[in-house]
Design a protein around this nucleic acid. Structure first.
Lengths: 334, 334
DNA sequence: ATGAAAGCGCTAACAT
DNA sequence: ATGTTAGCGCTTTCAT
């Protein structure tokens, strides 16, 4: 049914080797043979069987991408960019959703296994060093974000401390004095860094630390932000600004504030992180720290392919760009 | 490096056939052999080479999923569900983003090709019957949504006419008299159906049709909804309600209304379609028609696997469930 | 520069 | 019930 190299070879009157050479762009093929092969290729509509090729080459042609949930806008946007970046290099992407739990992250890594993929980009939230160690050196890995795991591995992330410091510094510069943080979580590496940046910015501005203003969040969805904000409003002295560790938390917090009849930014200003599309159309629009997602995706894919191609050097850490985008939720006109 | 069937066989002192039988759950294996094979399997940590297996079986083990953009929440949520449904049947999903243009949809289909996947679920927006015909019968296809293409193919979609009719009927029942529609587009099959449902509901309510209240949209993103709403507000007699053909348009329209100082739902009520997560946390929360996405994903995967397994019967059309979720953007308390 | 043949890891005939 | 062998479609020595 499907046309194979042999079909093309017999039609062109040459050996499969010659056809293979032409298909793979090998330079030294007699002009006459090349022409006949190309005609036969066109006539038959030959398409290489990627599976067979990869079996022979000992590769799968796939890279894995492990994210907590595709339905979280940040990961959907990032995944779209990773797929696009991989396609530019003729690689396919296999997506695993881990739900951000350790058990699911373990089984996702196991499912990806060494036979299905040649390497993987992972964005873990609960994984431990042992889980990575157990994989062995067979599957090259690139890690996204600052999950705190003591394992030598290529990483790409923004400078989370600096990003948080800028965001909170911006709130302080507006004259806000009671700046809250939403998203504290001892199990998340990025949370620790953003909290550190938050504290550094308070110190920069000469503001006191107030633990009643630091709200934890188990997960980072809209509902978690809404709950955390409600808890802050119930606190002894509600904040006049909130730094949320991601945009989803911020949108949830915004919902709670507006539902409570408070004005944003007049009563409470909000900053998030991620620059997801939603924040550009909320009312008010959301001030946010925008990581360069295209850069993150591009660098992660490039680093992974280098490793797959055998690059042997110490683990690398790449810091991606970020920008503070000031929008209505912190507009100073108020 | 990787352990193969032969390694296991020689360790267990049996032939590869016996090991293969055990691995594939073939019943007739002598108990003693079975035990030794299982021990060898465990000792070596054998994992089948899926690529080799599929090469031999003439399958790839992958199904394709073509969506316009993963960064559109509806498709991100749907994709997550398709992946989950496929995994339950031990299939992998390969995602192609088509951007909703015919050229990209054609090249996506071509890229998926017959060697990479055994079948595909497609959600086209611009594809023509010829493009499908050209694929030939080799690759089973299931189509999502009501894209108007004259081609016999399995389909899954909600009843768009009825859904729109219910949504608009709800607005009319609230006493709204000037109900606009956003999303008219001659190239989109679903748009035609939702427009038909809109008109039917106006007729049901004895309301006149007013073409100045029907706003076209080239694309279905937030910005398109925002622009369309702005155009409606500029019109001769602005609406007191809007039916948007999806939630993204609705969120864009909401943004425009609030930015213009209008109250929702007091001045203008809004209904969308899709029930994306954003609409549950916007202010006001968004009334929407919720398709049963899990059902859509599950049925699409099941129908596709049946076709891959050789089912030969006339094309089937499955109508998925939908529900009108009334939320604040049409709250009648006003 | 090109052909012949081996073999990637697996399953399916065929044989026993 | 299990061993032997061919071969899926391709790339890669090894010849020539």
């Amino acid at each position: 049914m499907a046309v194979t190299l042999r079909d093309v070879a017999s039609l062109a009157g040459v050996s499969v080797k010659t056809v293979s050479n032409v298909v793979n762009g090998y330079a030294f093929v007699k002009a006459d043979n090349r022409r006949r092969v190309e005609e036969a290729l066109a006539a038959t509509g030959y398409r290489p069987n990627v599976g067979a090729r990869n079996l022979r080459r000992g590769r799968t042609g796939f890279i894995g991408l492990m994210v907590p949930e595709l339905s979280v806008p940040y990961f959907a946007e990032l995944t779209a960019l990773v797929i696009t970046a991989a396609q530019r290099h003729d690689w396919n992407v296999l997506i695993e959703q881990s739900q951000g739990t350790r058990a699911r992250e373990q089984s996702s890594l196991a499912a990806l296994g060494p036979h299905l993929i040649d390497g993987a980009i992972v964005s873990p939230e609960a994984l431990e060093a042992d889980d990575l160690r157990r994989l062995g050196p067979g599957v090259p890995l690139v890690m996204l974000g600052e999950h705190a795991v003591d394992f030598p591995i290529d990483r790409v992330a923004i400078d989370n401390v600096r990003a948080a410091r800028e965001a909170v510094g911006h709130l302080a510069a507006m004259g806000r004095r009671r700046i809250a943080a939403i998203g504290a979580n001892p199990h998340r590496g990025t949370a620790a860094l953003r909290l550190a940046g938050y504290r550094a910015a308070l110190a920069d501005a000469g503001l006191p630390e107030d633990n009643t203003l630091v709200a934890p969040a188990l997960n980072y969805h809209r509902r978690d932000g809404a709950q955390a904000m409600a808890a802050l409003l119930d606190g002894p002295a509600p904040p006049d600004a909130v730094f949320c560790f991601n945009d989803l938390l911020a949108l949830g917090a915004l919902r709670t504030l507006l539902a409570a009849g408070l004005r944003v930014p007049e009563d409470v200003a909000i900053v998030g992180v991620d620059d997801i599309e939603d924040g550009r159309f909320s009312t008010p629009t959301l001030t946010t720290v925008a990581p360069d997602k295209a850069q993150i995706a591009g660098v992660a894919v490039a680093m992974l392919l280098e490793r797959i191609n055998g690059l042997d050097c110490p683990p690398r850490e790449v810091t991606a760009r970020h920008t503070l985008l000031v929008r209505e939720s912190t507009a100073s006109g108020a």
